[in-house]
Write a protein that binds this DNA or RNA. Structure first.
Lengths: 350, 350
DNA sequence: AAATTTTAGCCAAACGATTTAGCCAACATC
DNA sequence: GATGTTGGCTAAATCGTTTGGCTAAAATTT
C-alpha cells in the first residue's frame, strides 16, 4: 500500500487568489521588502485559509537552508543511570522547541567512530539547523565537527569561552550541601566523586572546598574517595569502603556526587556497622526517583534538568536566528532537599 | 556570524566525470532502469569520491518524498517514572535506525490539543516517513491521524488487528512470575495493578489467572488491589495498605505490576509488621535500576525495552519500504530475575 | 544493405517553495 | 512636459536531486 498526501501547493493558492506565487509567498512570510496592498493581502490570506494551505517544510528547507529541526547530541551509556536526566532533557527541549514548531532529533553518541560519521553527515546534510551538545569531554571529537559549521550550545561545561554553555551551578550546589553538613556540626566530611576528568566533579569539588574554607576548615585530600570510572551503586560502595579501610577514624559525614553513589555509601556504611544518620550523615545529588524511598530517605541536591535544557534550547534558537546571546555562560541554580539521611530530621525531632 | 556549508553538487561531479547529472544519479543510486557502461561507472564513482560528494538529503527528500527520518510518538508524563523505558526505547530505535542512516525525531505527546496539531502538521509535512506509536489508548487521537497517511508501528497493544504491533509478552511475564511464587508454595497471591484501562494491566491479569488456574487454584478477585491511577511508590503503598485493611488474613505473596509499586508494597508491609520475604514474598516488574538495591533486593521481571523497540523500528522500516511485515503482532519474551524479596534465596540457603 | 533491436547515456521536466530583478502605472517634483 | 519616485505586482532563477522519455550509435537480425 502506497501512502500519499494531498498537499496544497503555493501555486494553487496563487491561482485561487488571482495573484502570482511571489505575492503569496511575500504575504505569508511578511517580507518587509515587498509591500502588498491591504486588499490583495486579504484575498491571499483568505484563499490560503480556504484551501488549507501549509507550506511544505522540505521545499522551504531546500530553498532557504533551514530545516526547522534541532539535534540533541547525547551520550548514551549502556546502563540507564542517566535516564531521568535524559528524560527531563528531552522534555525541556521539546517544550522550548514546539512553541515555534521546531522538531527535535536525537543524535545518540556512545563514542563510536561510526556514530561520529553519522553526526558529521547529519551536519553536512543540514538535517538539523543547530545542535545541543550534552556533556562534552575536554577533547570531545564532536566539538571540531560542530565548530564553524553549525550553531550549537553546550549543556554542561566547555573550556572554550566563546562557546555558549548552560550548566547546573555545580559549585553552588556542592557548597550548599557542604554548608548544610557543616551547620549540623560535622567537621570531617568525605567527598565521594567520579574521576576529575569529568568537569562536574571538578566543579563540585570546588564548591566543597569553598564551603570548608569559608568555615575556617582546611581541606584534607585524604577525605576524597574517587570511584573507578563512573556512577552506580556498586561504584559508590567500593569507593567508600576503600575510604573507610584507609582511614583510622571514619568521617562523620559524606557528600556523594550522585544518589546512586550515595546508595552505595549507605550499603558500605551498614556493612561497617555505621548507622545512618546517627554515626554517618549522607547527602547525595540529583534527587533520583528512588531517593525519597531509600532507607533512610536520602537528603540530596535537586537539579532542574528540564529547565536547564529549556534555557539551552532557547539560546540555541536565538543563535540560529542570528540574534546575539547575552551571557555566554549561564548557570541554573539547584535546590537542597532535606530528608532523613543527613540527620537534620532527627535533630529537629529531638 | 553566518554559518555556511560548502556542499559539492551532483552537477560538479557530472562535469568532473564528463557525463550528465542523470548518469551520475543513476550510477550512485544503482537504478535498474538505466544501464551504464562499466568504464563510465568507474569514472563517475572516482569523481564522486575525489570531490567528496554526498547527496543532499533535503533535495532528495523534496524529489522523492522520503525524509529518512522516523518519528517516536511517546507519551511524556510529568514525573519520570517511565524514564528508564524511554531511555532504552530511544537507544533501540537509534540502533536500528542508524544502520541505514535514518534519523530519529521525538514527537512528544502529553495529550494536549496543541501537540496533536503539531503532530498532524509533522505528518502532513512529511517531516518523518513513519512513526513508532508508543502505548496508545483505545481511542487514542493519534491513531486516526496516522491511519492511511503514514506507515506506523504500535509499541504496546492495539485493538485493530490490521495494525502492526510489537509488545512485551505481558501474559507470559505475569504467568512466569506467578508460577514462580506458586512453586515456592504460595497459595494466596495478591496482584497490585494499575487500572484495567491500561492494556498492560489486562494482559498481566490474564497471565496471573492462567498460572493460578493451571495450578488448580481458583481466582479470587478479593486479592486484586487497584492503584488510584498510575505507577509510583506512593500509589503502591496506598493500594496495598488498602488491601491489607480489607482482608481478614494477609496474602503470603504479592505480584506488583511495577517495581515502584513493589517498593510501595514493601513499605506498607513493613508498616503492618510483615517481614519480607519471611511473612510476605514480593515480586515486581521491569527490573528498575533501584530494584537490585532495595532492602530486600527485589525479585522482578525484566523486560527488554531496547530490543523491543529495535524490532519495532525494523518493522517500521520494512513497512516504509513497502515490504510486507510477516506477523502483524510480535511478542518479546521477558525474563524473571530472582533476588531476595520472593524468598527463593533464603530457601536455598536453609 | 536495410531494418530492427539493444545499449549507453543525455535532456529536461518535475518537486514546492523563496527571492531577485524588473516592469508598469500613478504620482510628485522642478 | 520631462524626469524621478514609489507602490504593487510578476516572471524567472534557484535550491539539488530524481526520473521518464528520447536519441544516437552499436549490435543484431532479416
Amino acid at each position: 500500500m502506497r501512502h500519499r498526501g494531498k498537499g496544497v501547493t503555493i501555486r494553487e493558492v496563487a491561482k485561487a487568489a488571482g495573484v502570482s506565487v511571489a505575492t503569496v509567498s511575500s504575504v505569508l512570510n511578511g517580507r518587509a521588502h515587498t509591500r502588498v496592498a491591504a486588499e490583495t493581502r486579504q484575498r491571499v490570506l483568505e484563499a490560503a485559509r480556504r484551501l488549507g494551505y501549509r507550506p511544505k517544510r522540505l521545499a522551504q528547507a531546500l530553498r532557504t537552508g533551514l530545516t526547522y529541526a534541532l539535534g540533541l547530541s547525547v551520550p548514551l551509556c549502556p546502563d540507564s543511570l542517566l535516564s531521568p536526566f535524559f528524560y527531563e532533557a528531552v522534555k525541556g527541549a521539546l517544550k522550548a522547541a514546539k512553541q515555534k514548531g521546531w522538531l527535535v532529533t536525537i543524535l545518540g553518541f556512545q563514542g563510536q567512530q561510526e556514530e561520529l560519521a553519522l553526526l558529521q553527515s547529519t551536519l553536512e546534510q543540514r538535517s538539523v539547523d543547530g545542535v545541543l551538545l550534552f556533556d562534552p569531554q575536554d577533547d570531545d571529537p564532536r566539538l571540531p565537527l560542530l565548530k564553524g559549521r553549525l550553531p550549537f550550545v553546550v549543556v554542561g561545561r566547555c573550556s572554550d569561552p566563546e562557546v555558549v554553555t548552560v550548566d547546573n551551578d555545580n559549585v553552588q550546589a556542592a557548597k550548599l550541601a557542604t554548608q548544610h553538613l557543616l551547620q549540623l556540626g560535622h567537621r570531617r566530611i568525605a567527598f565521594v566523586h567520579v574521576p576529575f576528568c569529568f568537569a562536574t566533579a571538578q566543579d563540585r569539588l570546588m564548591g566543597y572546598r569553598m564551603a570548608l574554607e569559608e568555615a575556617g576548615l582546611s581541606f584534607d585530600a585524604n577525605l576524597l574517595a574517587e570511584t573507578e570510572g563512573y556512577y552506580g551503586v556498586e561504584a559508590g560502595y567500593r569507593a567508600f569502603l576503600g575510604l573507610l579501610n584507609r582511614l583510622r577514624k571514619p568521617p562523620t559525614a559524606v557528600l556523594a556526587m550522585d544518589d546512586t553513589l550515595a546508595l552505595g555509601v549507605l550499603q558500605a556504611a551498614q556493612q561497617h556497622g555505621l548507622r545512618v544518620p546517627d554515626d554517618l550523615a549522607v547527602v547525595g545529588f540529583n534527587d533520583s526517583p528512588f531517593a525519597a524511598h531509600c532507607e533512610p530517605p536520602l537528603t540530596t541536591v535537586r537539579i532542574f534538568a528540564e529547565t536547564l535544557v529549556e534555557y539551552a534550547t532557547d539560546a540555541l534558537l536565538r543563535l540560529i536566528r542570528g540574534e546575539p546571546v547575552a551571557p555566554k555562560r549561564m548557570l541554573v541554580p539547584t535546590q537542597l532537599i532535606v530528608r532523613a539521611s543527613c540527620g537534620a530530621m532527627s535533630r529537629k525531632n529531638n
